[in-house]
C-alpha cells in the first residue's frame, strides 16, 4: 500500500526541513538504541566485560538524544501548530522516542546483568533459548524502526503480531528456568539474573510493538493500542499479508 504520509510539499520550506530533520534524529536515536541492544546481547553471550561496561554507561547518550528530540517537537508544536498528518507525526515521534528510551534502559540492564553474571562465574551461553530470544527481539526492533522510517503499516502490523511469538518464547524460558531453580537451589541468584535478562528482552519486544502501533496511528489516523487488531484488519483487508 502506498503511504499517504508525505512530510514535504509544505508551503513553508523551513517546515519541511524541520520535519525531515526531526525524522532523521529519530532514525539516529533508533540506530543508537539498536546498537545498544546488540552490544548488550553480545556482552551477555560472550561475557565481554569491556563491552558490558560500555553498554551500561552509553545510555546517557540515548537519554540526551530523547531530550533533544523532545525539545524539537515542542518547538514545532509551538511554531507550526501542526494539523492532521503533521500533528500525528509529531505526536507519534514524541511517543516513539519515549519507548526507544525505555528500550535503551532495558539494553543498559542487559549490560549490568552481564557484569553480575561474570562476577559470579555464570555463563549465559548455557541458555540457548536466551540466544534465540535475543535474536528474535533484535529482528523485531530493526523491523519496527524500518516500518517507522518507511511509514509502512503492513510491516508494522506484521511486527505487532510477531510480539506474541516473543511472549511465548519468554514463557517457555521462564518455565525452564523455574524448573532449573527447583532442581538446583544453590544457583537461584544467577538463574534469576538470567530470567531478568529474558524479561528485559521481552519488554523490548513490548516497546517495539508500541512503536508499531504508533506507526499505524500515524498513517491510518486510528489508535490501535489496547484494541483488537482484528477489527482494523477487517476494515483494511489489504494490510494483512498473511
Amino acid at each position: 500500500m502506498e503511504s499517504k504520509i508525505d512530510i514535504s510539499d509544505h508551503i513553508s520550506h523551513r517546515y519541511n526541513d524541520e520535519l525531515e530533520d526531526l525524522r532523521n534524529q529519530v532514525m539516529e536515536m533508533g540506530g543508537l538504541v539498536e546498537r545498544q541492544l546488540q552490544d548488550g546481547l553480545k556482552a551477555l553471550q560472550k561475557s565481554d566485560m569491556p563491552l558490558a561496561e560500555k553498554v551500561a554507561s552509553a545510555d546517557d547518550e540515548v537519554n540526551a538524544k530523547e531530550i533533544a528530540i523532545d525539545k524539537r517537537c515542542t518547538q514545532i508544536l509551538v511554531r507550526r501548530q501542526p494539523a492532521a498528518s503533521d500533528l500525528r507525526l509529531v505526536l507519534a515521534i514524541i511517543k516513539t522516542i519515549n519507548d526507544l528510551e525505555r528500550v535503551g534502559d532495558e539494553a543498559e540492564k542487559l549490560g549490568r546483568y552481564a557484569i553480575h553474571l561474570y562476577e559470579h562465574n555464570a555463563k549465559i551461553g548455557d541458555f540457548t533459548e536466551i540466544k534465540h530470544l535475543g535474536k528474535h527481539v533484535r529482528e523485531m526492533l530493526s523491523k519496527t524502526l524500518d516500518a517507522f522510517i518507511r511509514m509502512d503499516v503492513q510491516s508494522a502490523i506484521a511486527t505487532i503480531q510477531s510480539d506474541d511469538e516473543i511472549n511465548e518464547e519468554f514463557d517457555s524460558i521462564m518455565r525452564q528456568l523455574t524448573s532449573k531453580m527447583m532442581e538446583d537451589p544453590s544457583h537461584i541468584k544467577e538463574t534469576l539474573r538470567v530470567l531478568w535478562a529474558a524479561r528485559a528482552l521481552e519488554r523490548i519486544g513490548d516497546h517495539a510493538k508500541n512503536i508499531c502501533e504508533y506507526v499505524v496511528y500515524l498513517v491510518k489516523g486510528e489508535d490501535v493500542r489496547h484494541t483488537n487488531l482484528v477489527a482494523l484488519l477487517e476494515e483494511h483487508p489489504e494490510l494483512n499479508d498473511e
Binding site: S12, A83, A84, L87, G221
Partner: peptide, 16 residues
Amino acid sequence: FTNPDHTLTENYITGR
C-alpha cells in the same frame, strides 16, 4: 483536524 479523509483537506489544513 487530526485525520481528514480527503487529500485536499489535508493539504489545506497542514499548509501544503
